[in-house]
């Protein structure tokens, strides 16, 4: 490919990088609108309902979710550290932190899987379930994609696709991972606290 990072001049790389970065930011904005739309639906149904959660529906347990949140935020920290390590050209550290992030991400997904299989409410059972499973499911899917993204990035880093100055794939993965974290804050608040 003509745009392969190692074959183009620095100036050209910077230009392509700035395009991709902007495009990726717009993608994230668009993606967050997707979440916002479902959150609006949730709040709308909620405000139209005399009690919340609706009769016969229980909120999922706060405890598990809190542990899971810590796992996810922890992965945000390791992700950050991974990038720091990369910037300081510390490849072993980088690899370790990325793997830690992946493991924590998978841990979060397992926690969510456990939660899903131990709830009485279902996706189609109530408006609460509809929003809960759609939003957390969408979020879980994002985490899953994020994990795949990180694995790809890890492999590409090992295969020498990135070099010290050209690592847009890494930047994108980091942004994406932090974005998924931030979405979780909103969902956690909506479904477990508020």
């Amino acid at each position: 490919m003509a745009t392969h990072a190692l074959q183009v001049s620095d100036a050209e790389y910077q230009e392509v990088r700035s395009h991709r970065l902007l495009g990726f930011l717009f993608f994230l904005i668009s993606d967050s609108i997707l979440f916002c739309s479902f959150i609006f639906s949730y709040l709308y149904d909620r405000s139209a309902s005399p009690m919340w959660p609706p009769a016969g529906v229980e909120r999922p347990g706060l405890y598990l979710a809190a542990v899971n949140s810590i796992v996810l935020f922890g992965s945000g920290v390791t992700m950050h550290l991974a990038m720091e390590a990369w910037r300081h050209a510390n490849r072993t550290r980088f690899t370790q932190y990325i793997i830690a992030t992946i493991v924590l991400g998978i841990g979060f997904l397992s926690g969510q899987a456990y939660e899903y299989t131990h709830l009485h409410d279902t996706w189609w059972g109530s408006v609460f379930g509809a929003s809960f499973f759609t939003l957390t499911g969408m979020h879980g899917f994002h985490v899953f994609i994020g994990v795949c993204f990180l694995i790809t990035v890890l492999l590409q880093a090992r295969n020498g696709v990135y070099d010290q100055n050209r690592y847009f794939g890494l930047t994108a993965a980091t942004l994406y991972w932090h974005f998924v974290d931030v979405i979780w804050v909103a969902l956690f608040f909506l479904f477990y606290v508020y």
Binding site: S37, F40, S41, Y44, D45, A48, S49, P54, W123, W124, S126, V127, A130, S131, F133, T134
Partner: peptide, 19 residues
């Protein structure tokens, strides 16, 4: 059968119109 817009199951028909 996810009841977002289903008034028979606590959803709201008007919600769809909004979104």
């Amino acid at each position: 059968g996810v009841p977002f817009y289903d008034p028979a199951h606590g959803g709201s028909a008007v919600l769809w119109q909004h979104v």
